[in-house]
Design a protein around this nucleic acid. Structure first.
Lengths: 251, 251
DNA sequence: TCGATATTCAAGAGAGTTATTGAATAGTAT
DNA sequence: ATACTATTCAATAACTCTCTTGAATATCGA
């Protein structure tokens, strides 16, 4: 078929595909999206974008990438259709292009979890007390919230909390946790959540709380998964990066 | 593998690298899986693998790749956990590592469909009569099958048909369709299916049938989606290492 | 207009990916 | 064993990706 005719040196990639088969052209488009996902920094940026719309500057700082580098990665995400951007004054604000991107990231995570054995090693190595840090599922949490037997703790940075958080959650960023421990009632168990299933913030918050003698567990998912499940979300007026966040009044 | 992270942290502060290090390691694993998806030939191979277990030789022939090249791509898929292989005599048989891989491919396709505008262009360009080739959904098809008002046509190659097909489907590969047209009853509508939503075989079969004055439509999905939905599947028992040379059944 | 700021662009070094070729390995049959 | 086959490995050349640097562009406020 097509491969044998192209055996004559050179001419690969888009040319080959467009010349030979409509299907390969389609697959090339799919591959472009997959390629955009195929870099850890871009996956990190996508998780940050899943918390809400943010400027290049904020994303570069949060991901630890240089400014130009973050910009280039974000452009890859935009060109692949995974993210979109809009200009707001001096800032360019990036966000995910839709909830299907979250679904795709979830599918990627599940497959990687199930098939890449090194992930198990990493989980045991880095998230060392993982067995002790048993997660609370979304459904469990909903039940526990209605009967008031838990305090819900959001350990993300304030700007991410402001862009959207679980109803009734208290926001104490990880680094302030020890100092502000008194803000959490001692009687009830604390359930902490952060950006997503493999965000370390919640793990470390739970570890820190237990060290202080508190009962604490981590929620299985992060904020984006909660929002995507159609569950209620609370929003504060945006602090940084003045954007027009159209939202229906709640609470 | 982890070479770059320790070298470049001079200016942005070491805490970022340290804080996100376990997470970046996780993301690196996820990225490895995404990278494996990020090549059109490998996506093509994955779709072939979704039809059933097959030898490197058969996969190379079906995808049009050279032998060594197909082998290398398949090894990438195996290393990323998307595919598994087992030895059977002279042949090494590859297959998908699980149904979650199909789910991942589906999520990738949906995101690409929704966000990559070039795909629309391709659909209009190559699958030119697309509006006329309106698809039958799985549920519709199930209804139509039970009341006997359709003939179900599998246009994939015989070895893929043998590895699994929809109950009651007639197998006529695309290239034999004109010659074997008489095997299809004239009275009932024909519904054709093939490897998946963007496999061209069914599109072309429907176009060919209509040219001959038959009523024909294409099923929305292919065989793998049908099987993954838990719907009944028929298998011809004889295949194991199906290659171009038909071996007589020995067991 | 100007200067200040946020982002993008351009160019280049270094690492990684791809397809090809030919050689090496692992199984099977004689 | 020996010949044979299917697959993998190794080496190579062309190409792509990533990150850095410094310059260019766009927007805002004075």
């Amino acid at each position: 078929m097509f491969g044998h005719s192209s055996r004559t040196r050179g001419r690969r990639g888009a040319d080959l595909a467009t010349r030979t088969s409509p299907k390969l052209s389609m697959l090339e488009q799919f591959a472009k999206v997959a390629k955009a996902l195929g870099n850890p920094h871009r996956l990190d940026l996508l998780e940050l974008l899943a918390q809400g719309e943010r400027s290049v500057e904020a994303l570069a700082a949060a991901s630890g990438l240089s400014f130009a580098n973050a910009s280039q990665h974000l452009q890859v995400l935009r060109r692949s259709g995974l993210a979109v951007s809009r200009r707001n004054g001096l800032h360019v604000l990036y966000s995910l292009s839709g909830d299907d991107v979250l679904a795709l990231m979830g599918a990627l995570r599940r497959t990687a979890e199930r098939h890449v054995e090194e992930i198990d090693r990493l989980l045991r190595g880095y998230f060392h007390q993982r067995d002790a840090l048993e997660a609370v599922s979304r459904d469990d949490l909903i039940g526990r919230l209605t009967d008031g037997s838990v305090t819900l703790l959001d350990v993300r940075p304030p700007e991410e909390y402001a862009a959207g958080h679980l109803p009734g959650a208290v926001n104490i960023p990880l680094k302030d946790l020890k100092r502000r421990l008194s803000e959490l009632p001692e009687a009830t168990e604390v359930v902490a959540y952060c950006r997503g299933p493999y965000c370390v913030l919640a793990y470390e918050a739970v570890a820190a709380l237990r060290k202080c003698g508190r009962a604490a567990r981590r929620m299985e998912d992060g904020f984006p998964e909660w929002r995507m499940a159609g569950l209620p979300v609370e929003t504060d007026d945006v602090i940084e990066a003045a954007t027009t966040v159209a939202k229906p009044p709640s609470s």
